[in-house]
């Protein structure tokens, strides 16, 4: 009997643990209800708009400008986060100093703090009469109500993605590899840049992609500090909200479907990085 069973192609390998049917069934049901059907609805509405409509709505200069703003600010913020997130993670993994645990716990603040709260707090700091803004104002440097403000908000939002992706990989680094580099004559800096940094590259890239993906779609923390000036500091999610408030569902659908495709691209990118890392280095991040 077992031979018959084991030679047959099976979708699931059998084991004695009960409850697969009900848990798997419920998982699929709930997943479909909450996530898949609503997302499919967006796809269906976008498809029923037709290619021509979708293209004309999507190529509206204001839409293109908002998409570009969302993308490049998220890109810049992710880049900042890769540099500083790397330093923060390194300091927390390798060094022991008073206050380390506090810093470590604080890194998750952007996960826990509601985005709207972050948004108004950052505005209070960087507005022309704000905590920091007032010192920059005399030099003609404006942060709030410019794209720079968006970058700052997205740095706040994206930081934990980089730190929390890189940190565990750093903890797993083998010291003997660094020692090997030293015995071969490499200075500490050479070891850091030629040995340590390259082995963190997949994790850094993943952190970058996660930060980028989150930044492109971010809304709450950005709209307060951005000033939302069309063609300058208007982000794509805000444009969706505005079109919805005008009951212009077609335009909202068009922008939404473009953004959703962008998210899928980022997701694909992350999976490609991980597949590459697994193939090349024989391990997942």
């Amino acid at each position: 009997m077992t031979t018959v069973l084991s030679t047959r192609w099976r979708w699931r390998s059998s084991n004695v643990i009960p409850g697969f049917g009900i848990t798997f069934g419920f998982t699929l049901f709930y997943l479909s209800l909450v996530v898949l059907i609503p997302l499919a609805c967006l796809g269906w509405r976008a498809a029923s708009l037709g290619g021509a409509d979708l293209a004309s709505l999507g190529s509206d200069p204001r839409v293109l400008s908002a998409l570009a703003t969302s993308f490049w600010t998220a890109f810049a913020a992710a880049a900042v986060n890769v540099v500083f997130g790397l330093i923060v993670a390194w300091v927390m993994v390798r060094y022991r100093f008073p206050g380390r645990r506090l810093l470590d716990a604080a890194v998750d603040l952007p996960f826990a703090l509601p985005t709207a709260v972050a948004g108004i707090a950052l505005t209070a700091i960087y507005a022309p009469n704000g905590w920091i803004g007032q010192f920059l104002q005399p030099y003609g440097l404006r942060i709030a109500y410019t794209p720079l403000g968006i970058v700052i908000a997205l740095v706040f939002i994206g930081l934990p993605f980089v730190v929390r992706t890189v940190q565990p990989v750093m903890e797993e680094l083998n010291r003997d590899v660094e020692e090997a580099a030293a015995t071969l004559g490499a200075s500490r800096l050479q070891t850091l840049f030629r040995v340590v940094l390259p082995s963190l590259a997949p994790a850094l890239l993943t952190g970058f992609a996660l930060s980028l993906g989150r930044g492109v779609g971010e809304y709450g923390s950005v709209i307060f500090i951005a000033g939302n000036i069309p063609y300058v500091s208007e982000i794509a999610p805000l444009l969706i909200v505005m079109r919805l408030e005008e009951y212009n569902y077609a335009a909202a659908t068009a922008i939404g479907s473009i953004m959703l495709s962008l998210s899928f691209l980022v997701l694909l990118l992350i999976n490609l990085i991980q597949a590459w890392s697994r193939r090349r280095f024989g391990h997942v991040l």
């Binding site: 996530v35 059907i37 609503p38 997302l39 609805c41 967006l42 509405r45 993906g213 989150r214 492109v216 779609g217 971010e218 809304y219 709450g220 999610p237 805000l238 969706i240 909200v241 919805l244 569902y249 909202a252 659908t253 939404g256 953004m259 959703l260 998210s263 899928f264 980022v266 997701l267």
Partner: peptide, 17 residues
């Protein structure tokens, strides 16, 4: 998936639904 979707789109899909 919901982690990588903009929260605004999460709202949008329910409006469309």
């Amino acid at each position: 998936l919901p982690f990588s979707v903009s929260p605004v789109i999460a709202g949008l899909v329910y409006i469309l639904l």
